[in-house]
Each structure stands twice: as C-alpha cells, then as structure tokens.
Design a protein around this nucleic acid. Structure first.
Ligand code: ZN
Length: 356
DNA sequence: CGTATTTGACCCGCGC
DNA sequence: GCGCGGGTCAAATACG
C-alpha cells in the first residue's frame, strides 16, 4: 500500500522534474535563438557599415563621419553625436530574413585629422530587466586621445566603447568578471561613477566604467576601455562564431570575428572610441561636448541601440519578425550588453586593417 | 580563511 | 602654484 503511494508520488516528482527541465531547455533555446537573431542583425549592420566605410575610403576627402545604425525598426534616430556637423546623410534600409534594419549614415568633416564616427544603432526594447543601479550621470562621450595610462602592455589598445542601456543589473556581466576598484562622485551627477577592471584574465587591461543618469535612473552608461586579451563569455563567443559561420561568404577583412582579434590584440592600432546606446530612448543629449573630455576622450564612433517600438511596417518588410527578435533580445540585458561590447569591438578592429 | 567590495587617500593633468 | 575634476591604489571591511 505505502509502496504504491510512494511510487506514485515518486513518479509525479519525476514528471515535474522533467517538465521543469523541459521548460528550462526551452527557455534556453529561445535565448539562443534570439541571440542568433541579434547576431544576424548586427552582422547586417556591420555589413552595412563596412559598405559605408569602403565608400568613405573611396573618397579620401572625408575624414570624419557620423554613422547611424538602426536595428529593428527605427523611425528616427536622434543621437547626439559628438560635436559635429553632419554634412550628408544617407540611409539604407534592408531586411534579411527575419531581421529588419535601418541604417543611416551621416558624413561630417572635422578639422581634425582623426576620423570621427558616430554609430547610432537603435534597437527596440521594452522591458528588460530594469534594475536600479548606482550611478552614472550622463556624458558618455569620451575617448582617449592621448595615452591614458600605464597599463598598456604593448600597443596599449585604447579603444573605448560606451554603451547606454536601460538600467542593467548592478553587476552586469558582459561575460567577464569585473572587480570594482574605485568609485567617484561627480559634480553634476548625484550618482557616482564606478570603476571596474576585468578580472577574468590575470592581465586583462580592460576597464569598465559605469555611470547612471541623473535624471534617468533607469539609464546607465557603461564605458569599456581596452580590449580583452582573453575570450569573453560563451554567449557572445557563440554568437560571434555563429555569425561568422553564417555569413562566411561575407568577409570584412579580418576584423569581423571578434575572436580573431584575440590572439594578438596587443598590437592594434589606435582604436577609435565608440559609444553604443542600448537604451530605449532617443537620447536628448548623448554627448554634449566630447571634445572636452579629459581622460578617455576624443572622438568616437557612437552606436545607439535601443529605442523604437516598431511601427515601421514598411511595405515589403516583415517587421513583426524583426520586432520579435528584438523583443526577445531585449529580455536579455546582459547578453545585449555583451553583444554590444563585442560588436563595438569588432567595429573597432574594423577600422584598422593593418596590424603589426 | 580567501576573496571581493568599500572608501578615503593619492596622483596627475589642466585651467586659472 | 593652487584648486579641481577625474582616475587609481590600497587599507580596511564585508562576504561566503
Ligand atoms: Zn578581460
């Protein structure tokens, strides 16, 4: 008698367990799927960017330029761009498979010789994990023009990536372990700025600085500085790999695969800093005045992701699909962040093909 | 007990 | 030279 009951119970338990497992797997699968989608989208963007870049290269005259990249359905991008004057603007829109992206480029000329690139990548998002953080005023536009420090091993990679996203977890891991080594209060921002260093590798020069917006506590700006000398999180890696495989035919020189740059990133040429916006908002004043940034500043490409609710439904376009992918993606803030970083990284590498 | 975080001191470039 | 803002170090502390 007891045995029966017991057995039944056990079976029941087993069942539940299996179901749970199933569910878990399903979720995972979904995650992966979104990841792939994102990667695809990003890949497209990259592609577009590459095209643009080539175009630019064709005309040596244009040294500085601003590029706006939109993922998902973006109707209008308002990125603040650095101080710049945009001269020409061209926009492309395309949809590959299930992703739909809009891409626009602005060309601007700067007096300085450095190239100023502004990437504005917009991705739709709606509710990702909104958590509160600690700080972050605004002003993400920084690039280092000079040499900042003393940590550089060989070539002292100075690439700077700024990611603006809807509040991420305090410890938003982009696949790496970060050790907090400092925190500073900034004068115009009630929120302090936190400094992190990558702790995954013994000597990984990568640093990250997180800052929360004063008015928008939900918006955080994460700035990555340097390049990892180790592999990043499996997720991003997988994504990257997948992307590369997926689009093997398309070769961006040797920069596409972020991983590719890992082997020897020591000697990379100066990387243009860039900024990525994963927020969901337009960004009233992204970087007011990038020029006057002390530490890591200078000019930087800007990438804005996030923002837009998909109302574009263009004829011939399969918007809802794109929307879907985006939505799923957004649900994974962490992934988004890592991806953003990865993408940004790829882009940088892209800028300079010569190495050492 | 080992490790990660906190937090004030220290350093450094820059403007006045 | 001084004050200031920004970035980093390191001792102290919290955490598991
Ligand atoms: Zn690292």
């Amino acid at each position: 008698m007891w045995e029966f009951e017991s057995e039944a119970k056990m079976e029941h338990h087993k069942k539940s367990e299996i179901v749970a497992e199933l569910k878990r797997i399903s979720e995972e699968n979904q995650k992966l799927t979104s990841l792939i989608k994102v990667m695809s989208s990003n890949y497209e963007s990259l592609k577009a960017h590459l095209g643009k870049q080539q175009e630019d290269w064709s005309s040596p005259r244009t040294m500085g330029k601003t590029l706006h990249l939109g993922l998902g359905m973006a109707e209008d991008v308002n990125d603040g761009g650095c101080d710049n004057s945009a001269n020409s603007e061209s926009a492309f829109s395309g949809s590959s498979g299930e992703k739909n992206f809009k891409y626009s480029v602005e060309d601007l000329q700067l007096p300085s010789k450095k190239r100023k690139i502004n990437y504005s990548l917009q991705k739709s998002e709606s509710g990702n994990s909104s958590t509160e953080e600690e700080d972050l005023p605004d002003k993400e536009a920084h690039g280092v023009d000079g040499a900042a420090g003393h940590e550089a091993a060989v070539g002292s990679p100075r690439r700077n990536v700024s990611v603006r996203t809807r509040s991420e977890a305090n410890t938003v891991s982009d696949g790496c372990h970060w050790r907090k080594y400092g925190q500073k209060m900034t004068r115009n921002n009630p929120c302090p700025r936190a400094y992190f260093k990558c702790a995954m590798a013994p000597s990984c020069p990568v640093k990250k600085l997180v800052q929360r917006r004063a008015e928008d506590p939900s918006i955080v700006t994460i700035t990555y500085r340097g390049q990892h000398n180790h592999l990043l999180n499996p997720m991003a890696m997988a994504a990257m790999t997948a992307a590369s495989n997926h689009s093997a035919s398309f070769t961006m020189g040797n920069h596409l695969p972020f991983a590719a740059s890992f082997p020897t990133l020591s000697s990379m040429s100066p990387f243009p800093p860039s900024s990525l916006n994963l927020t969901g908002n337009p960004d009233p004043n992204p970087n007011p005045n990038p020029n006057s940034n002390p530490g890591w500043h200078s000019v930087h490409p800007q990438l804005d992701v996030g923002n837009m609710q998909g109302q574009i439904a263009r004829p011939g376009g399969n918007t809802h699909l794109g929307l879907n992918s985006v939505a799923s993606i957004t649900s994974d803030p962490n992934f988004t962040a890592s991806l953003a970083a990865a993408i940004a990284g790829s882009m940088f590498g892209l800028g300079t093909s010569s190495k050492a």
